[in-house]
Design a protein around this nucleic acid. Sequence first.
DNA 1: TGATTTACCGACCGATCGGGCGGTTAATGG
DNA 2: CCATTAACCGCCCGATCGGTCGGTAAATCA
Lengths: 181, 181
Amino acid sequence: MLAAAVRLFNTRGYDATSMFDVAESLGITKSTLYHHVSGKEQLLTMAVDRALDGLFEAAEAALREESAATVRLKDLIRRSVLVLADRLEFVTLLLRVRGNTAAEQHALSRRRELDRIVTDLVKQAQAEGGVRADVDPATAARLLFGMVNSLIEWYRPDRGAPESIADTVADLAFDGLRHRA
Amino acid sequence: MLAAAVRLFNTRGYDATSMFDVAESLGITKSTLYHHVSGKEQLLTMAVDRALDGLFEAAEAALREESAATVRLKDLIRRSVLVLADRLEFVTLLLRVRGNTAAEQHALSRRRELDRIVTDLVKQAQAEGGVRADVDPATAARLLFGMVNSLIEWYRPDRGAPESIADTVADLAFDGLRHRA
DNA sequence: TGATTTACCGACCGATCGGGCGGTTAATGG
DNA sequence: CCATTAACCGCCCGATCGGTCGGTAAATCA
């Protein structure tokens, strides 16, 4: 049910999707839908929470590792890509939230916390000499996850296994496009 | 007037912004607004066209250069960042269009054409040996512009000159995060 | 000056939306 | 077998939306 709603939210947009549309796609009436969920915003909240929980688990797992910050950073990227691929539709919805309601504001603040985690990790990796120090860590973190998050715009399960995409992304992030002899 | 509308569209979302909101932010009534524009969708169309025109000009200027494909690719990235920064709000709106109306479909198809241009350029750069050949050119193009396009999520004029951001992005894209001795 | 155009407004319309209410059928459990 | 609960529906509501219309004030032009 949540999945059906999220699919509609992503294709038509959250505002443009009516509760009637959601109900219809499930073969039930709007009244019945309201018997199961408390309202439209709850569907949104459940969906973005599902996305955020996955991303936080990925981040925490990467941070827990006992390896150099540079290695943990690369792993954070890889794990994030896997979550993106696994919970594609939920993360898609999350990344489109603009913060008009209290629930959306809360989602945005959790996203900012993720941003802080990544920025800190970049900073540590720079300090230990694994990452070039001539880029602002916050800028690097944002560009990095701009690249990762772009997956929601084009990734489809038939375009390769998540693991291989994750490797490509992490590899490209660290070594760049340039050919090396 | 267009600028005011686009600003509202970006902060509250296109669907969530009423024509009354747009009129109010201009200090006029809805009727007066309709005296100047033909409808809500026209505002959208004008805005995304402004963004697309800029991006196409950037792409064509980069393609016109008489240099190696690798250099042209790097320049395309740089020029695109400059357009993003210059027409930030228009591009922001463009990148959020989901294709529900005919006008939005048209915008999406122009975006896909840009994608093709970049993919082709990556392919040429790989053929001449300037870009590593072990990544799928379409994937590389999408990740690359995922990174570039993420600017709309965080770039603010006070966060550095567009030119320096453009250099950072192009540099990171080609050489990666890794520190080199 | 008089005529025409341009900018502007208030009032209104049909459609759609999120959500609520009262009631009915189907399942469950003692 | 009966009572309780869960799943379901038709119908309705108040609010809001994009857009229209008839008309007025101000600018422009002959």
